[in-house]
Amino acid sequence: MAEQREKLLSIRHLTMEYQPNRRLFEAKKPSVKAVSDVSLDIYAGETFGVVGESGCGKTTLGKCIVRLLKPTAGELFFNDGGEMKDLLRLDKKTSFALRQKIQIVFQDPYASLNPVHTIQEAFDEPMRVHGIGGGSREKRTEIIANALTRVNLQPDYMYRYPHEFSGGQRQRICVAKALVMEPRLIICDEPVSALDVSIQAQLLNLMRKLQRETGVTFFFIAHDLSVVQYMSDRIAVMYLGHVVELADAGDLYARPLHPYTQALLSAVPVPVLQAKKERIVLKGDVPSPMDPPTGCPFHPRCANCMEKCKTEKPELHEVEAGHFVACHLYQQHT
């Protein structure tokens, strides 16, 4: 079903390796592969969820897409009016122009707004450099007022400073700040994890409403599985820089295939009294990304580990329609 839709972003073999700073006379330190060989397709208008524990590379992936980080390898094809352009190999002008189309909302609402600028100043600069509102200041102010109204804030709040707002309000401001740029894709990097649960629901509903109105695509990064399930159409599960499973949201939660996904989902609390649930407890810790295990990145902790897993890295492949998994257990099914 998703296949008929318009592709917005194609991530191909994206790898991001952090090279540690090397000082004079210091031995070479191993690099850290935060994202290794990730390929994903994101369709226009959907919400694409990415889950995984801390340090699995989901934020790095998001930052590569908005080009805050320069990936060490791979391609990022972005649909610019029907033409797929590689964001990493563009001339300066197009590269700059396309930045407007991909916006990011950060996790920490308290650090996402510059304390010395009013909301209006914070909104105005990116709009000005990208020529939104036709270069007219009045027009831009009007757009800002509209955007604030859309996130249920009063227009005259734009002359206030960030410290005058609560966390939830600030995060709504950040969403509005992304929206005024008329983006096609918004990277939401754990937008609700710093908020109270009641405020979380409020913001999530608001984001869904805004998505219906504008048709914007969300790349939704989170570690809260219930939040991702609520928001996403499709979900990718990441472990140690790899995508281990990718499926429609309902499918993934109903029938997780990868042992890691199974363990992850078994940890979701069930809001039913006396609900008995078998909890899969993983042994050990996540291996250091400086020294990743050979073969399947999950094999040292996997209950179903086979000989093959220790040497050969499983590729992501389609087990059922729209359900991808990177695990040798399902290799024979194809």
Binding site: L68, Q100, F106, S112, N114, A122, V129
Partner: peptide, 26 residues
């Protein structure tokens, strides 16, 4: 490293503006 600076960079705002308009006042 603050997100508000990253947000500027993600929008392609130049180094001069980030340094003297966003960082220096802080």
């Amino acid at each position: 490293q603050e997100p508000y600076v990253e947000s500027c960079r993600a929008n392609g705002i130049g180094g001069m503006s980030i340094m003297f308009h966003h960082l220096l006042p802080n």
